[in-house]
Design a protein around this nucleic acid. Structure first.
Lengths: 134, 134
DNA sequence: CAGAATCCATGCGGATACTG
DNA sequence: CAGTATCCGCATGGATTCTG
């Protein structure tokens, strides 16, 4: 499987001189960092597509190839960043439901924009691959 | 300094059944991956703020803490992904100018959205830090 | 000036096993 | 069911040196 790792969280010094282009970059990077986990996007898309609370096991089934460690970890990060909610039902057997917060839902549009970019990139890749084959 | 690595480029199998939420996720991830380098955002912001062609050495000065290797590498990736242009002037001494492509400029708005998210996150961090200090 | 090349530390993310 | 715990490979990015 492809690559691993990919950094984003930078904030060189970020002394909160928060108005220059540098400060803006830091905030954008903070925003991207919140989405930059190996599985964050897939989790968000799973939640968006189901459009209601999802149980842990359901996410595990929906997201192909994710390990329990990663699912739990990225879920906690998304929760920490306020993008999703986590509702625990103290039952036996245990039940936990995840849902999008408002911040999370607010990402639908930006994500669409990034999807456009992604499509363009894939298109370019295909073009170049075809050329190379000639 | 903080972390290293951070994956994004996933595409578990991505058999181009490109219409389900899974396919969308893959494309969004491709888009994010294009921005997910340690310095990509800062480079783009540097180009955006200067709003005209920038020379290599100017970027090196503007972006605090970046190494030559990283600058050159991420510039090539951005160029490969069609986000920036690279204009070489065969002079002595050498001169190379980088500028935003249309795809790159198209990111201004999405980046603003991500900046909003980043601001929210930083705000939350500050709030929690304050509470913790009490 | 604008890189290319090399070496190396860090830590993300995968796999597997275990638990309340 | 919904996680936690542990071990480990290896890509990523940093520092430094060399070059056309």
């Amino acid at each position: 499987m492809g690559r691993t790792h990919n950094n984003i969280s930078n904030l060189p010094k970020s002394k909160s001189h928060c108005l220059g282009p540098a400060g803006s970059a830091a905030q954008v990077k903070a925003g991207i960092a919140a989405l930059a986990g190996r599985w964050k996007i897939e989790i968000l898309f799973a939640l968006m597509s189901h459009d209601g609370p999802c149980r842990y096991s359901m996410l595990e089934r929906d997201i192909d190839g994710i390990s329990q460690k990663m699912l739990a970890q990225q879920l906690r990060e998304l929760e920490r960043d306020g993008l999703i909610f986590r509702q625990i039902y103290p039952e036996i057997p245990p039940k936990v439901e995840y849902s999008l917060s408002e911040s999370g839902s607010a990402l639908r549009e930006p994500l669409r924009a990034l999807k456009i970019l992604g499509q363009t990139l894939q298109q370019q890749d295909n073009d170049k691959a075809q050329e190379a084959e000639k």
